[in-house]
């Protein structure tokens, strides 16, 4: 088992390696959250507008 501090130092490249992985995590999670949010927003709007159009029954439901 390597020393933990030595591991996080990444052989002196810590300031380059860790921000790279942080950027990757930020991009993956950021895109996921943004996509989920806009899906929820559209679903909510659609539900609201369908409530005002009672004669239209929809054949497929989102989500």
């Amino acid at each position: 088992m390597r020393n933990l501090a030595e591991y996080f130092a990444m052989g002196g490249y810590a300031v380059y390696v860790w921000p790279s992985y942080a950027a990757a995590v930020a991009v993956l999670i950021g895109v996921l959250i943004a996509s989920l949010r806009s899906l929820r927003a559209r679903s909510a709007e659609l539900e609201a507008i369908e409530g005002s159009l009672p004669h239209r029954s929809r054949e497929e439901r989102p989500t």
């Binding site: 993956l28 895109v31 996921l32 996509s35 989920l36 806009s38 899906l39 559209r42 679903s43 709007e45 659609l46 507008i49 369908e50 005002s52 159009l53 239209r56 989102p62």
Partner: peptide, 26 residues
Amino acid sequence: YFVSILLLRIRTEILARKLRTLRYMQ
């Protein structure tokens, strides 16, 4: 990851298009 996100986002775009259609009809 891209496949999952893409499916999710296309679903969103389908809903958005339906919304535009319904609003137009309204």
